[in-house]
Amino acid sequence: MAERPLSPHFTVYRWAYTMTLSILHRVSGLALSLALVAFVLWLVAISLGPASYDAFSPALQSWPVRILIALAIIALLYHFANGLRHLAWDMGWGFELRQARASAAVVLIVVAIASIACLVFLFRHGAGA
């Protein structure tokens, strides 16, 4: 008798908002941990004085780093907004399916608008620097 095979799971389950927001919460949390390391390096550069800061800051102006900063901002906004959703659940609110679907939509819309606003503001003011 052959060993019982494991039935398909990840590859057959219909992708839904439930799993999407959950995995994004983890991915954004992980991204923010990494961004925090970069942020601390930046603080170290500041604390060591003008010379080290001048050596560090041109890297922040490069496009690859700008894109990483943009992603970190989006991750922060998403993790914050969806984190509020988790806080509401922890207090017992929002478990009805229509509430969970609505809160998911609100999170995505708010994050999209806030991300665009943040990025437009930052790159408009940062580009001339």
């Binding site: 439930t18 959950s22 988790h86 659940w89 922890d90 017992g92 478990f95 009805e96 399916l97």
Partner: peptide, 25 residues
């Protein structure tokens, strides 16, 4: 982790996620 797949799937329209949340509380 309050993914909510359980409540979406339940053919009896039950809500295990809410019950688990209540236990955590």
């Amino acid at each position: 982790h309050t993914i909510m797949n359980c409540a979406e799937a339940c053919p009896k329209d039950l809500n295990p996620a809410r019950a688990i949340g209540a236990i955590k509380q």
